[in-house]
Structure formats: C-alpha cells, structure tokens
C-alpha cells in the first residue's frame, strides 16, 4: 500500500491538495497434491450404481476457485480559494477505482466511482 498527500499553498488565497492511496492485495492458496487417503485405491469404483466412476483425488486446481486479487486506487484532487478572511470556495474530484483480477462468486467486482464536489465554507 502506498499513500501520498501533497498540500501546496500556491498563493495567499489559493491552496491545492492531493491525497492518494494505492493498494494491491491478494489472497491465494498453494496447490494441494498427494491427497489420496491412505489405504484407498483411487481406481476403485466409487459408486455401485456407476462402476465406471472413479474418484478424482487431484485437488491441484482448487486454489483457483477462491483466489483473490484486487488493486485499488483512491485519490482526491482539490483546491480552496479564499474570497476573504472568512469565506472560502472549494472544489474537488474524488476517484475510487477497484480492479478485480481474480473473479470469485460475486462476479467481476471491478468498478470506478468519481465524485465531483464544490461549495463554499464560511468561518465565524
């Protein structure tokens, strides 16, 4: 995870700020191997109703079903402009982005949300 905050006072009246956090997170599992139970013949039919059906003791790919891999970026870029001693106008853009590179049962969660904000602050 990285974060960066920058605050720049450009003039007595104008101030810029940037806040950003970038994170990468994964959850993964190693392959499972060699899991045939002791004393069990894997080629033995496992169902009297279906003698051709044999056990599949290969668990080497089950880690793929629930591995997780996300990267997220959240950042805000904004400015404040002082109109006078008490009043300030502000504006900002906030970006939230999530990339889902390993899809789990919730489907692809990748998405982006952008928020634009503006207004005025008065101190008293």
């Amino acid at each position: 995870m990285f974060f960066l905050n920058v605050n720049l006072t450009a003039t007595d009246k104008l101030n810029f700020f940037l806040e950003g956090v970038y994170s990468m997170s994964t959850g993964s599992f190693s392959s499972f191997t060699g899991l045939t139970p002791e004393g069990i013949d894997p080629s033995f039919p496992i169902s009297p109703d279906n003698p051709s059906s044999v056990a599949d003791y290969d668990f080497s790919s089950i880690n793929e079903y629930s591995d997780l891999d996300y990267s997220q970026l959240e950042g805000t870029l904004g400015l404040n402009y002082k109109l006078d001693k008490r009043a300030t106008v502000y504006g900002s853009v906030n970006l939230m982005d999530l990339q889902d590179d390993q899809i789990y049962v919730y489907g692809d969660l990748s998405g982006m949300l952008v928020t634009y904000a503006a207004g005025m602050t008065v101190g008293f």
Partner: peptide
C-alpha cells in the same frame, strides 16, 4: 482472515462429494 473455503478447512474436512469426477 482467509477466504472461504480455506478458513473453514482449517477446522473441517470437505464433503466427500468433492472427490467425484
């Protein structure tokens, strides 16, 4: 703490159907 099913498999074994082809 970990994703399912691994958080569960630390204390439980899976169902036997999981060995079916």
């Amino acid at each position: 703490r970990q994703n399912e099913p691994f958080i569960c498999l630390q204390c439980h074994q899976p169902h036997f159907h999981s060995i079916l082809t």
